[in-house]
């Protein structure tokens, strides 16, 4: 199974790469152009995109086009998730590219959050949840016995649907990650991390005079930016966002979207969104899920202007979901 995973351009020492500069230098690959898969799919008649059709046929021919990218951060193959025996995700194979935003769209209950939780093994915390398949982060199997799940999660930030600051001061919220992972050499260094994280999250000007007041006292949009600051304070390699704007007003949403656009320069971002406009605005790749299956994935412009699958087309034209 492992040999199947295409990892061109991956430097051999990369499995050891930890957070910090090294892991993110990558090859600077901006976005994946899916010209080649496009022609292959056309040859295929544009049909038979269902992952279930993929068994022993050469991989490229049947995988949803654009499921693979060069030098991916995450490489997922045949991922299934069961909740108490009920299958919520079916044979999903999908790569996450570096320094780009992957948007996941699809009707409610199609498994977007479930897939997101696979990436940082948050499904482990759900009683009765079982994950099968292969998920590699920087070429290393995240389910390997030698992987410390807490260390793994430290490399993957997560922003939730509902802003969830800790019942602590604004400062302590941002300092939480650096503290538990011992990232700060001194108090001054910690101050630095807090300041720069809040600045990157676009919150510094608003809170610099009240760092010791509770994070829960901020507005919804500010709380969500605080949660983003908290996440980037540990310099993760990937940021997962599960409908980060669904509880926010349009102005706060616009601010978060701008922020995502800036963060893309340093991080790989996977965002679940209910808003197709948002997916179109912030992402470079878009994946469409339906009833637990990955139906289509590709360059965002291409998916929105020229969807290849009926289900995708129905969804983005609003005929469905």
């Amino acid at each position: 199974m492992n040999e199947e995973i295409p990892e061109p351009g991956r430097a051999p020492e990369e499995p050891q790469a930890r957070r910090g500069g090294a892991a993110r230098e990558g090859n600077g690959l901006g976005r994946e152009e899916d010209g080649a898969p496009l022609t292959r799919q056309r040859a295929d008649g544009g049909l038979n995109l269902k992952p279930s059709g993929r068994v022993s046929v050469p991989e490229e021919a049947t995988q949803p086009d654009g499921a693979t990218v060069e030098n991916p951060v995450f490489s997922c193959r045949d991922v299934n998730v069961f909740y108490s025996g009920k299958q919520a995700l079916k044979e999903v194979s999908l790569d996450v590219g570096r320094r780009q935003v992957l948007a996941m769209i699809g009707p409610s209950g199609c498994g977007k959050s479930t897939f997101l939780r696979c990436l940082n093994r948050m499904n482990d915390t759900i009683a009765g949840a079982r994950v099968t398949g292969h998920i590699h982060l920087d070429g290393r199997d995240i389910h390997d016995e030698s992987v410390d799940v807490a260390q793994l999660r430290a490399r993957i930030g997560m922003v939730f649907q509902k802003p969830n600051p800790f019942p602590k001061s604004i400062y302590d919220n941002v300092a939480y990650g650096p503290r538990i992972h011992g990232l700060a050499r001194s108090r001054a260094h910690l101050d630095d991390i807090v300041c720069s994280s809040l600045t990157r999250a676009g919150l510094w000007e608003e809170v610099k005079d009240r760092l010791s007041s509770p994070g829960t006292g901020l507005s919804g949009g500010q709380q969500q930016r605080l949660c983003i600051a908290r996440t980037i304070a540990v310099q993760p390699e990937v940021i997962l966002m599960d409908e980060p704007c669904s509880a926010l007003d349009p102005i706060a949403t616009a601010r978060i979207e701008d922020l995502i656009d800036e963060l893309r320069e340093s991080y790989a971002i996977v965002i679940v969104t209910h808003s197709m406009q948002q997916a179109a605005r912030v992402s470079q790749r878009t994946a469409y899920f339906h009833l637990g299956e990955l139906i289509e994935v590709g360059n965002t412009d291409r998916v929105f202007t020229n969807p290849r699958h009926r289900l995708t087309e129905d969804y983005i034209t609003g005929r469905f979901g």
């Binding site: 915390t125 807490a150 999660r153 490399r155 993957i156 930030g157 939730f160 969830n164 019942p167 949660c227």
Partner: peptide, 14 residues
């Protein structure tokens, strides 16, 4: 709230 616990777990806290 479960969300608060999840946030900490997702940060990599034991």
């Amino acid at each position: 709230p479960q969300g608060m616990k999840d946030a900490s777990t997702a940060m990599g806290a034991y």
